[in-house]
Design a protein around this nucleic acid. Sequence first.
DNA 1: GACCAGGCACATC
DNA 2: GATGTGCATGGT
Length: 232
Amino acid sequence: MGSGNDRLKRRVLAGELQSYYRRLFKQYGPQHWWPGSGPFEVIVGAILTQNTAWQNVEQAIRNLKEAGLLTPAALLRIPTRKLARLIRPSGYFNIKAARLKEFIRFLFDEYGGSVRRMFKEDPACLRKKLLNVKGVGPETADSILLYAGGFPVFVVDAYTRRVFHRHGLAHRKMDYHDLQALIISALPKDPSLFNEFHALIVKVGKEHCGREPDCEGCPLQRFLEGRAPISW
DNA sequence: GACCAGGCACATC
DNA sequence: GATGTGCATGGT
């Protein structure tokens, strides 16, 4: 991506996306993802919510809080089996207990257990390290960087893919990083924008861009009506 | 009872 | 490198 043609397409997409974001925000308002949670709780939530409805994650986090275990030091000490029992409502509890432990070990090995110290790291470098933690993939790493660290990283998820593909804004086969780069290059590098936009995409994805073959009544469809699909 | 949800690692071809 | 599979609960 570097030709004049690509730059033009990017500007077109940028215009579409920014305008679309404003409309979504106006229609749905702020989504309050991870309201009032500290960075550590956000990280735990990012791991627990993998392929899981958020409602189930809330219960698991509540259990951890009530047990007084929602700190790096406490999760370092707790046996994996006991952790699994507490996070049971979030599903895949054995896997996720192991993943939380992996992250905690990484946090202590690299940063002495301090989330604040971890986020002093250069974000690109931190991202690479996070991806080396077993159980942290691209989406979880980016959720951690954006929602816990406040770095301007766009989180691509199943909804983002579905919504963008459905409306001709991206190829279905674009991989995670291609789609992410496309979106980031089209928008101002503003963490709160990325934060809210991603949450709004999930919202509209749930309501309109499900598995049905068309998107009748979908705000994005109405917005794009009459415009030629962008072909990348 | 089927389907889905704010993924990821691992096996296999 | 692409595609398939296991992991598991709770809501609709």
